[in-house]
């Protein structure tokens, strides 16, 4: 299992701290809890955690401020946001501000478990990148960044304007790398509506973890990549071109774009 790795849970509700600890401990993790982001920051300066789970709406210092303070203090540990005020705006803003994932409350044991698994895998990848960098061996980056003209929602999904009024979207290589042993993908149907920051596909692994895939833009699905259903390897092989997931007509691309990060910023 996940022995030896430690996580920090921050929430102002004791019952959430208890529930998350119970599950994480059962998964074999060392769990540290804190009911305030302020004191959690102090903990972070003393100790390194593989993963941080943080609530958004908290008194004194909220989750967004926490993310900014972390950035200022150059703490790069992956953060997963959890919130009861689970609006799309909060989800998108969290990912824009540097969180690697977003879990809306209330979540099931499975949802939390798959998110933690991905977070820890992200941490391991991060460590590997650091190792590669320190060895000054820039040849083998462990994941492929998205093409410069694309835009991405956090590290999860990408979108690209294909033609006037048509947008293609898919999963980033980094997202796929954090999901180990992908087995199956479940897609929505043509003509369904997707919402930015809302789950639009489920990635299911060998060990039955279900990973929700959050859409980078909102709109109506006009085509889905049927090839993925038969050949799941296509996703991992070519996530940015032939491994696309949906083609959609966006509802309000200008608005959605505000919370997307241009992939060009990853290259320099």
């Amino acid at each position: 299992m996940l022995n030896g790795e430690n996580i920090l849970v921050i929430d102002d509700e004791q019952i959430i701290l208890d529930a998350v600890s119970r599950i994480a401990t059962a998964e074999g993790l060392d769990v540290d809890v804190d009911n305030s982001a302020k004191s959690a920051l102090k903990k972070l300066s003393r100790k390194e955690y593989s993963l941080i789970l943080c609530d958004i709406l908290m008194p004194e210092m909220d989750g967004f401020m926490f993310l900014e303070k972390m950035q200022l203090q150059k703490i790069t540990n992956p953060v997963i946001m959890i919130t009861g005020f689970s609006t799309v705006e909060n989800a998108v803003k969290s990912l824009y501000k540097g969180a690697i994932d977003f879990i809306p409350k209330p979540f099931t044991f499975e949802e939390l478990r798959s998110s933690i698994h991905r977070g820890l895998q992200y941490y391991r990848l991060q460590k590997r990148i650091e190792e590669v960098k320190s060895k000054n061996n820039s040849v083998s980056i462990p994941y492929v960044p998205c093409p410069p003209k694309y835009h991405r929602l956090g590290h999860l999904s990408w979108m690209n304007v294909e033609a006037e009024g048509i947008v293609k979207l898919g999963a980033t290589n980094l997202f796929l790398e954090t999901i180990m042993d992908l087995n199956k993908i479940e897609l929505m149907n043509v003509d369904d509506l997707v919402i930015q920051g809302d789950s639009c596909a489920d990635f299911i692994t060998e060990d039955d973890l279900v990973h929700h895939f959050l859409s980078p833009v909102g709109g109506r699905i006009i085509e889905r990549n049927e090839k993925l259903l038969t050949d799941i390897k296509l996703l991992q092989k070519d996530p940015y071109f032939s491994g696309w997931i949906y083609q959609i007509i966006p509802a309000n691309i200008e608005y959605d774009m505000k919370h997307l990060i241009p992939c060009a910023s990853d290259r320099m």
Partner: peptide, 10 residues
Amino acid sequence: NNPLTAVLTY
């Protein structure tokens, strides 16, 4: 959502 989280996770 907080109490629901507890019920659902447990």
